[in-house]
Structure formats: structure tokens, C-alpha cells
């Protein structure tokens, strides 16, 4: 489709008075109509009627009398609250959140305890514009860990994030993807998004016995409910 369209043709309709009122032509026009409806032909009648006629010329296209000062956007500060807990009813997860950071090489470090999930704190705060990132272990050397059942999540499943300011943020799963760690999709996980989103990350088979690590990551993508 065309990305530009010319002005619509003006259609001067008979019901100027109605248009003036409904289009919020201003106090003067509105007051004039009220006066006429009341049948009061007293003091303000003529001057307001001429104001009305003037306004009616512009009112159809919503013109103002001159240039207006714009509403400018207020800066959007980073939320000062932090996430404290993640709940995923479908897979019975109710876990506290550790604060995750990067090591000297820039690699994100996992939670230190297997029942915990973690939040990457130098990223996006959940609920702010952008993708907040939570990670949790799939397993230890001996047992299942907090995100063992993450692979069971499906689009439409709910994820709750509890915040330090007592808000609960509800996210809905939109997709999930198993990715090779060597080809980790950094942009899709950490890159810009125009709305508040969430990523949950854990490991996925196959297990690399030589290096003692899983070869893949599972990434679950979710968006904030409105």
C-alpha cells in the first residue's frame, strides 16, 4: 500500500453547528449552541454566533488557531524495582531469583544454587521496555534443577514475575527455541524490543561428555500481558 496519502477532500456539511459541538470547537462555540438551544437570544448571542461561524470553517478538519506547543515525551527511567521470584504454574516452578552477572570474559554466569533461577541485572528490568533475561539450571550432576521442565512450556503458558515493589508481572509464552550454544542467538535474546518481554534460558541435550557441558540452550520467549 501507499505510504503517503493526500488530504481528504473537505466536505462542508449543512450541520455546521452539530459538527462544531461534536468536534469540540472550543468553549465559545459550545456556549453559543447552549444559548441557542435554550432559546435565549440575550447578550452573548451575536458575538458568539460569529465566533461559531469562524470556528466552523476550521472545525471540520480539527484546525487550531495557530501553532501549538507539542507534548514532548518524558524520559523513561529504568525501573528501580528488581525481580525477586519467578512462578510458572504449568511446570510448578516457584523460585527465588539470584542476581546474575558476567564474568571477566563477558559470559553470563548461572545461578549458584540449583533450586534458584537468576536475573541478568545489567540487562532489562522485567516490565520495562526490552527483554529481561532469567536463567536457571536444567540439572546438577545428580538431580533435576529449577528449569528441568522448561521444555514443556507452550505458547500461551503463563509466567509470573514478582517484583521488589510488590508488583506481579504476568508474561505469556510466545515461542521456544533450542539453539546450539556455539550459535547462540544473542540479538534475539538480548537485542532491542519495542515492548516489555521476557526470556527464560536453560540447557538442552545433547550433553558433551568431553567438556562436561550441554551443547544446546533452550530459550523461551514471552511478552508482558496488558
Amino acid at each position: 500500500m501507499t505510504s503517503s496519502s493526500r488530504p481528504l477532500r473537505r466536505r462542508v456539511v449543512a450541520a455546521l453547528i452539530t459538527a462544531a459541538v461534536l468536534a469540540d470547537a472550543g468553549v465559545a462555540a459550545g456556549a453559543a449552541v447552549t444559548a441557542m438551544r435554550e432559546g435565549a437570544g440575550h447578550h452573548a448571542g451575536t458575538s458568539r454566533a460569529s465566533a461559531l461561524a469562524l470556528a466552523a470553517e476550521h472545525v471540520e478538519r480539527g484546525a487550531a488557531r495557530g501553532l501549538q506547543d507539542p507534548r514532548t515525551a518524558a524520559p523513561v527511567p529504568r525501573s528501580t524495582a528488581v525481580p525477586t521470584r519467578v512462578l510458572i504454574p504449568r511446570i510448578s516452578v516457584d523460585a527465588p531469583l539470584e542476581t546474575l552477572s558476567r564474568d571477566a570474559k563477558g559470559v553470563l554466569q548461572p545461578p549458584t544454587q540449583w533450586p534458584d533461577a537468576g536475573w541478568y541485572a545489567n540487562g532489562v528490568v522485567p516490565g520495562d521496555t526490552g527483554a529481561a533475561v532469567l536463567a536457571g539450571h536444567l540439572d546438577t550432576t545428580k538431580r533435576a534443577a529449577v528449569f528441568v521442565d522448561l521444555r514443556l512450556l507452550r505458547p500461551g503458558d503463563r509466567i509470573e514475575v514478582r517484583m521488589s515493589d510488590h508488583r506481579t508481572l504476568d508474561f505469556t509464552v510466545t515461542s521456544a527455541k533450542v539453539v546450539q550454544k556455539a550459535l547462540f542467538p544473542t540479538s534475539a535474546v538480548y537485542g532491542p524490543t519495542p515492548d516489555p518481554q521476557l526470556r527464560l534460558i536453560t540447557c538442552s541435550e545433547p550433553f558433551d561428555e568431553v567438556h562436561g557441558v550441554y551443547a544446546d540452550n533452550l530459550v523461551v520467549f514471552a511478552t508482558l500481558d496488558h
Binding site: 514532548t72 559470559v107 545489567n122 521496555t129 526490552g130 536444567l138 540439572d139 545428580k142 524490543t193 550441554y214
Partner: peptide
């Protein structure tokens, strides 16, 4: 008739982007 600017957020990414993947498993289930 002067100029002003409105600074509108399009999108937002991690302030500092980690490198690569994350090791979140030790193979107990593998």
C-alpha cells in the same frame, strides 16, 4: 515558531550484552 525535540523510546536492549551462551546444566539428566 521555534524548534524543539521530543525524544521517544523506540526499543530497548540489554545495557551490556553478555557474550555467547550460558552453562546451566551439569549433565545429571543426560
Amino acid at each position: 515558531h521555534g524548534l524543539t525535540v521530543s525524544t521517544v523510546l523506540d526499543s530497548s536492549a540489554a545495557a551490556v550484552t553478555p557474550t555467547g551462551s550460558i552453562d546451566t546444566g551439569a549433565g545429571g539428566l543426560a
